[in-house]
Structures are given as structure tokens and as C-alpha cells.
Simulated assay, not measured.
Amino acid sequence: MIAAEQVRAFRGMTRAGTRSVLAYRGDLVTGAITLVIQVVLAIAVWRTVYAGRAPVNGVDARTAVAYASIAACLQSVLLPWQFSTLPMRIRTGQIATDLTRPLGLMWQVFGQNLGVLLARLPLGLIGLAAAGVLGALVAPSGWAAAVLSAVATVGGALIAMLCNLIVSMVTFWTFEVSGPLIVYRFGSAFLSGSLIPLWFMPGWLRGAVEWLPFQAQVYTPVSIYLGQTRGGEAVALVAVQLGWLVVLTLLLELIWRRARHKVVVQGG
């Protein structure tokens, strides 16, 4: 009975997250237009860069253009300015009410984050449609790549939500998280490979980035889809995603335990 109530509560938080995005239709229209412009510019830039050139690092123009288009669309879905209202609820004190609900706070926030992500999916599809019209998309390198890239996309989405939530938790100590969110968003946009694929980065930088969770958000699913990462290497990247999911979940739990004491000290 309790489990059923918690499932209903989680679904309710997911719906609330979706509605929080769909309620602002002007922002959705602006976001769609911005994404289409971003996709068009990315295609134009990479086609210009490759004009009359041979493949670079084994990557031809068609693959580079497809990567830029898909990565831009993934970024728009996985890296919004902010997934949840947790920072605002902490600042206003509404967090005290959240703590009294039968569904745990982290599950409440995760449900809302999931709703935000689902509501942003149409933006990504609009961007992909624009890329398709411009002839920038390619089919997956095979059925195995299609399935594994789909799994990797889910893993990347979960990692993105966990990272965003961890940054949002800083509000328990600072009451203002705009600065950390700006640093996180721009840093993750670069380190995830959504701006520049990892295969174009210098060896020392790529080696460092591969130790971070960001590349699992965008680079991993797109590189597998395009066949730039194959076989055992592709499976290894998905395994790395699973490892980061465990690490980030444990880190979030540790931060939340400390944050709970912080709430008590401040009087809830």
C-alpha cells in the first residue's frame, strides 16, 4: 500500500515537472528557434571546416556534421539551465514542507527532473528534424550500435540529472546557486563533447576528460550511434556510465545526509 502511494506520488512529481515546462510556451518557442539556429550554424561551420579536406583523425565531413547536429539536440534536452526548483524551495523555506511528505525529497526532485526532461524532448526532436531537412543526419552504423546508443542515451540522461542535482544541493550552504550552475553548464557543455567531439581534442586533454562523468552525457551515446566507438570499446563506455551512476548516487546520498543536518541547524 505504501509502495503504491509512493509510486503515485513519484508520478505526480513527474507530471508537475512536465507542466512546469509546458506552462511557459513562449520559452518553448524561443528554445526551439534557438536550437534550430544552433543546429543550422553548427552544420554550416563544420561543412566549411571540412570543405575540400580529407578525413581528420579518421572522421569524415558527413560524420562530423552529423555529430555536431545530434550533440546540439542532446545538449538542449540534457543540459537545461536548471532541472528542478530545489534551490528556490530551499531559499523560500518550502523545503520544510517537502521533508514532511511520504515520498523522500531526493525522489521528489528526481521525479520533477524527469518530468522536465520529458517535456524538453520535443525541442530535441525539432532540432533533429531541422538537421534532417538539411541532410545532416545519418543512419546508425548497425542495429547493435542503435540499441547500445539508446541505452547510453538513457545513461547519459541519468548522469546529467544527478550532476545537476548535486550542483543544486550547494544551495543548502550558499542559498544562491546561480554561479555554480553557470560554471557547471558551460563546463559540462565543453567537457561532454557537445561542442567539440573528444576525438578532436589533444591527447592530454582527452585523457583527462575521459576520467570525468561529463563525456558520458553526450559523447558516449553519439559516438556509439555514429560507429566511431565500436565493439568492446563501446561496451566499455557504457560500463563507465554505470560506474559513474553508482559513484554519483553515493555522492548525492552523502551530500544529502550532510544537508539534512544543515536544515535542522537552521530550524527547518
Rank of each mutant, 00 (worst) to 15 (best):
A144I: 01
G111M: 12
W199K: 05
F214I: 01
L125D: 09
S141Q: 14
V40L: 15
Q217W: 07
V45G: 07
T100C: 11
Q6Y: 13
L251D: 00
V154L: 12
I70G: 03
L252P: 01
A208S: 10
L252I: 12
P102Y: 08
V263E: 10
L242E: 04
A208L: 15
A236Q: 10
G142W: 03
S149Y: 01
E253S: 14
M161L: 13
V65M: 07
G179Y: 07
D27P: 00
R257D: 04
F83Q: 04
R101A: 15
A259F: 04
A130K: 02
Q6M: 14
N113G: 15
Y67W: 13
W143V: 12
A72C: 11
W199S: 10
T63K: 10
R19S: 13
Q112M: 13
A66P: 10
L245V: 03
V77R: 05
K262T: 15
G156F: 02
V151W: 01
V177Y: 02
M106V: 13
Y50K: 06
L198T: 05
L99P: 03
T85W: 07
Y184M: 12
M1P: 10
G227Q: 05
Y50R: 11
W107R: 15
Q94A: 14
E176D: 15
A119V: 04
T100P: 04
A234G: 07
T63D: 04
P140L: 09
G187H: 11
T85F: 02
L128H: 01
L74M: 14
V133Y: 11
M201W: 03
F172E: 00
W173M: 06
Y50P: 06
Q94W: 08
A139N: 08
V49F: 15
W81C: 03
V247W: 03
Q108A: 08
V263I: 15
T92C: 08
V265N: 14
R91I: 08
T100I: 07
V222S: 05
R260M: 10
I224C: 05
M88Q: 15
A216V: 06
P140D: 11
L181V: 07
Y219V: 01
T229C: 02
R230Y: 04
Q228D: 02
V109K: 04
